[in-house]
Design a protein around this nucleic acid. Structure first.
Lengths: 110, 110
DNA sequence: GTCTAATACATAATTCACTTATGTATTGAT
DNA sequence: ATCAATACATAAGTGAATTATGTATTAGAC
């Protein structure tokens, strides 16, 4: 697990990106997907995940659909048109930041 | 310039790394060096830089030497033994985080 | 047949590393 | 002379996280 401090500012971008690639997903599913993609290094806590999803929805970047699986609630999130556009920009910005950081740290990335 | 939000959690590591590579440096010099290494994309504000240096010093990771250049004050910072050791760890952690992020974003880094 | 872990959502209080704003003072360039 | 650059510093405010709770269902272990 990484120092969680590092996650700051990257969570929204991660959420947008994962939803861009996988379409409709629910919160818990997203957390599992991120865990998988990161090889167990990025563990999204609920306290970070749900407020972040709610914020993205409030900002009009995500839309939701609530389903009942038996008696269990599932809330599916997907990108709006605006969200899709922003997802692209945010990912580009983060990739650029990563490249900048590796320049500053003077490390080669495989 | 990047979204400054992304810098959070990475600043101390940057400072430790730059000081590890360049030895004795003063604050303003560090900000210029980071600006140069990042091709003008990382602009350290004083409000972030100085408190961060002070914190590292208070934590025993940096030691200081104040010099007068004519009438102008310069405060040189350098790593302590503890600081040198932590610099290594922090850089490794950040590099690892960067790799994790690129996995999650599924991007190839040159 | 009960207990634990996993599934699935949610929110409130708190933290703390930043941003933004401000302050002081020297030096070099035009 | 005036402006930009040099060089330090700190205080107030922000906001995205952490930490701590809470509710409830379902599957598996024993």
């Amino acid at each position: 697990m990484h120092s969680p401090e590092l996650l700051k500012g990257t969570l929204q971008t991660i959420l947008l990106k994962v939803l861009k690639d996988h379409g409709k997903m629910y919160g818990y599913e997203i957390s599992l997907r991120v865990k998988e993609l990161s090889e167990n290094k990025l563990l999204l806590t609920e306290g970070a995940l749900y407020p972040s999803l709610h914020r993205l929805e409030a900002d009009g970047l995500l839309k939701t659909e609530t389903m009942m699986m038996g008696k269990r609630v599932r809330k599916y999130y997907s990108l709006t048109t605006t969200g899709r556009s922003l997802a692209k920009d945010r990912v580009e910005e983060l990739v650029d930041f990563i490249k900048t950081m590796s320049n500053v740290l003077q490390v080669k990335l495989a």
